[in-house]
């Protein structure tokens, strides 16, 4: 089997109401077999529904349906800035392949979809941050606050200067330290998430 996967997503430019409630949106999935548009197979539907690790990309799948025309509609939830997702899958077979292996097909399809999501994530880490990283980000304000209080309240001038130096700061002001630590922690979480 060979798979080609392409995602086309749109990002909303209006992020002012991003804090309001998240409503499920619909992802259209088009399937092509040997370059011809075809009805999506049950194996691929199953892969989309239960094999792909959507949570690693900050997405949750709520429902999967197939229309009369063979197009799959996936109800999803994710970041508010993510407006729409279109997925196109192309499957074809090498002429030498004699046996069909459904488990192999599932593995390949899953890997290809996740690779395409990863391609999106590398370019747009803010849109495809994993659920676990979002969880970690919640601790950043508290941790930054705690660390900067520890540093700025110290009476050891040498220690304070050394901390400021490590952070690349000129001052040992509480707000400067907190802001620097916050930025650094968020960057580390984003970098690890991309890996």
């Amino acid at each position: 089997w060979f798979f080609e996967v392409c995602f086309a997503v749109t990002e909303s430019l209006n992020t002012t109401n991003s804090s309001t409630k998240i409503e499920p949106k619909q992802m259209k999935v088009l399937f092509f077999e040997d370059c011809v548009c075809a009805t999506i197979t049950s194996t691929i539907l199953q892969t989309l529904n239960s094999k792909v690790s959507w949570d690693r990309f900050g997405l949750s799948i709520k429902d999967v349906q197939v229309t009369d025309t063979g197009i799959a509609l996936i109800e999803w939830e994710g970041p508010a800035q993510l407006e729409s997702i279109l997925l196109v899958l192309h499957r074809y077979r090498s002429s030498q392949t004699m046996l069909q292996s459904w488990s192999r097909e599932t593995q390949l399809c899953k890997r290809c979809i996740e690779d395409a999501l990863n391609d999106l994530k590398q370019q747009n880490p803010h849109l495809f941050c994993s659920h676990s990283s979002k969880e970690l980000q919640r601790y950043v304000p508290d941790l930054s606050c705690c660390l900067s209080k520890l540093i700025s309240s110290s009476s050891d001038i040498e220690f304070k200067d050394s901390c400021a130096q490590i952070l690349g700061l000129q001052s040992t002001d509480y707000n400067d330290i907190r802001s620097s630590i916050t930025t650094r922690l968020l960057q580390v979480i984003e970098d690890l998430d991309k890996q």
């Binding site: 089997w1 060979f2 798979f3 080609e4 996967v5 392409c6 995602f7 086309a8 997503v9 749109t10 990002e11 430019l13 090498s94 392949t97 192999r104 390949l108 890997r111 290809c112 979809i113 690779d115 395409a116 999501l117 990863n118 391609d119 999106l120 994530k121 370019q123 747009n124 849109l127």
Partner: peptide
């Protein structure tokens, strides 16, 4: 704005 992510995999 539209973003594109793509991949290929084969056995």
């Amino acid at each position: 704005s539209i973003k594109i992510g793509k991949a290929f995999s084969g056995s």
